[in-house]
Design a protein around this nucleic acid. Structure first.
Length: 660
DNA sequence: ATAGGGTTAG
């Protein structure tokens, strides 16, 4: 016998009835109801059983409560027993409340076939019952079936969707990322007179945002008479995800001016926007706001802050925030580790990893491993790579294709193509990324022929399809080896046979290839004919080609355009100085260096430097490319004022590996 | 008198 005194914190009703020896059906029901209101599901089932022992027969008021408890406790077996009980005493069709509770119980426990069987026993399902079915399909990962069921419901003339049904339907459309379906539901929402239902509109807004109907999302947002923090946050996140970070920040300010209080979710998107826009000032201001709102202590918020400072090239500020996180999770460590590498401080990433292992309360996950292997790649330190490799094996990460691909890349960046192909051969499930990594590896070592062979092997003998990145790698390999005709053939293959749309990057590599082999006119033609307007990067490539082929006239024309586009682009100065430097005109280099300093070019400099550092690796690997590699190193040193840390300074760190 | 379905920002 259970003592009711134990639950004295609950309602009076229980205390009163608890003293009685024999309860009436009504009293049992009241007791169960009050227990369910307090979410004491164990107790609900316990008393439900007790009720049986007392010889009381549950009625149509008792059963839904008991079934709800089964759902909450995930006790399908108990639910099945109740279902059997109901069948024994009455037909299910006799009470819709009981019927829909049984359906909902099966649906929520992932047993749609049973739910459907009960549903089909009903004579006249009402809107709640229909909705339970739609929701069941939607929740169990069958959004398509949910929509189909809704269609079936629409055929029945006696039921009309209410706001709950429509919300479920919008959720299904979102899962299908089908904005056309979303707008159909939108129309239905209007016709049914729910055009002022905020949660319904927010769901629709989210549906448009998630199914890449950017314009529809904005239109709906602008039309909404009432907006809450969710509406604003949805739209801010939508802008960020569509690469419109500045716009996202504008909307954020509008929201604040509007008097809507931002919350954790809002701030997360805001920090993402600051990071994407590299807007450190705005980032700092938003950080202060987060402190004022008292949300800085949230792990997600502080992690987003670390990420933001890192992406705004202020690693020390990022590290400061990181140090203050009381309960760091694996995502926080990822932000720190990838952030340091982004800032050209890969050795601090490795130190961070060691620190994490010492603290011994966070287990690295696959994402973290991919990141740290990438950091190690930046270092280009073979012994360190081998150390990480053994760590990967020891903790069983080697079956993950992403990690396999990272290892292939790591070894090739450390100059060990032998190990790279060995790792490659040992990977059981080679996906596109794995194949692409090996191709990239051959590419950066100037082994264009091997890259092409690997590509052909991939296409012919495996079921893996090359993607945009694969083609980028192959093209880039051709470019580094000066394989003009092969490169052009690959480009054609990509467009014609694989129907892949070349991105700006593909054009950039193509221009690079043409430039390297001296086809400067064709390169310029391609730049003009591509479906994008040329970016500073592409013009930079052209400029670099002019440098190699000593075409001063064309170089100046390109440089002029580049300068007009972005007078503060650090890469421009780098390339110009490279060009003059190559001619031995060191006084020009010095002038440019001073000019960089005077103009206070900071934004983008760190990024360019890292980019240049990557290129340095390529130059080093590529013998015939750059006769004076030292030149590049020297320029790097000259311009490295803003970035104190250097790749060579890093120390080798060993991992004991048993710490977790 | 007591009972059944729902979503949305990261």
């Amino acid at each position: 016998m259970v003592s009711y005194r134990k639950f004295s914190s609950s309602l009076d009703a229980r205390q009163v009835f608890g003293e009685m020896t024999k309860r009436s059906l009504y009293q049992w029901n009241t007791l169960l109801k009050s227990l369910s209101r307090d979410k004491r599901w164990e107790q609900v089932l316990c008393h439900f059983t007790q009720m049986f022992r007392d010889g009381e027969k549950p009625d149509n008021f008792t059963l839904p409560v008991a079934l709800k408890a089964c759902v909450e406790l995930r006790k399908v077996k108990y639910g099945e027993i109740i279902h059997g009980l109901v069948n024994k005493y009455a037909t299910i069709g006799s009470d819709l409340y009981v019927g829909s509770s049984i359906i909902d119980m099966y649906a929520k426990c992932g047993r749609m076939p049973e739910a459907l069987r009960v549903f089909d026993e009903l004579d006249k399902p009402d809107i709640v019952t229909w909705s339970s079915m739609v929701s069941g399909f939607e929740k169990n990962g069958f959004p398509f079936e949910a929509v189909e069921f809704f269609r079936r419901m629409a055929m029945a003339l006696d039921v009309f969707p209410d706001r709950v049904t429509l919300i479920t339907l919008v959720s299904a459309s979102t899962k299908l990322s089908n904005s056309r379906l979303g707008s159909c539901v939108h129309g239905l929402v209007m016709r049914r007179g729910f055009e002022k239902d905020l949660s319904l509109l927010n769901s629709l807004l989210n549906c448009y945002a998630k199914s890449r109907a950017f314009k529809d999302a904005v239109t709906l947002f602008n039309m909404m008479a009432e907006k809450d923090v969710i509406s604003w946050s949805t739209v801010i996140a939508c802008y960020v995800q569509n690469g419109a970070a500045t716009e996202a920040l504008r909307v954020f300010h509008e929201m604040v001016d509007n008097g809507t209080e931002p919350n954790v979710a809002t701030m997360l998107s805001v920090f993402q926007a600051c990071a994407a826009a590299h807007d450190l000032d705005q980032g700092r201001k938003s950080h202060e706001l987060a402190i004022r709102k008292g949300v800085e202590t949230d792990v997600k918020v502080s992690t987003a802050l670390v990420d933001m400072y890192m992406k705004c090239f202020s690693p020390e500020e990022g590290y400061a925030v990181f140090s203050r996180i009381p309960k760091k999770d694996v995502v926080s460590w990822v932000a720190l580790i990838s952030g340091f590498t982004l800032n050209g401080m890969a050795h601090r990433s490795v130190e961070g990893f060691a620190m994490m292992l010492r603290e011994n309360n966070t287990r690295p996950d696959a994402i973290l491993m991919v990141k740290i292997l990438g950091s190690c790649s930046e270092l280009g330190f073979l012994e360190q790579a081998e150390c990480f490799h053994s760590y990967v094996i020891k903790f069983g990460f080697d079956s993950n294709p992403f990690i396999g691909a990272s290892l292939v890349e790591l070894y090739s960046r450390c100059g060990s193509l032998g190990n790279a192909s060995k790792v490659f051969n040992e990977i059981n499930l080679k996906d596109t990324v794995v194949w692409t990594s090996l191709i990239t590896g051959y590419g950066i070592h100037g082994k264009g022929t091997e890259a092409l062979e690997t590509f052909n092997h991939m296409v012919k003998s495996s079921k893996v399809e090359p993607n945009e990145v694969t083609f980028l790698s192959v093209l880039s390999a051709c470019s580094h080896s000066g394989l003009l005709h092969e490169g052009l053939r690959i480009f054609e293959l990509m467009v014609r046979d694989y129907r892949l749309a070349p991105s700006l990057e593909h054009y950039a590599v193509l221009v690079d290839l043409l430039g390297r082999v001296g086809e400067l006119d064709t390169a310029i033609e391609i730049t003009k004919g591509m479906p994008f307007s040329p970016t500073p990067q592409i013009l930079g490539t052209l400029l670099s080609a002019c440098r190699i082929h000593q075409n001063g006239e064309m170089a100046e024309a390109v440089a002029k355009t580049l300068f007009e586009m972005e007078s503060n682009h650090a890469g421009y100065y780098m390339l110009m100085s490279n060009m003059y430097g190559a001619k031995g005109e060191w006084d020009y280099v010095e002038k440019l260096r001073i000019s960089v300093k005077d103009r206070g070019i900071k934004k983008g400099l760190a990024e360019s430097l890292i980019d240049i550092k990557r290129k340095v690796h390529r130059f080093v690997a590529d013998d015939n490319m750059h006769p004076k590699k030292e030149l590049v190193y020297r320029l790097l040193k000259e311009l490295d004022l803003h970035m104190k840390e250097d790749l060579e300074d890093s120390a080798y760190i060993e991992f004991e590996g048993d710490s977790l």
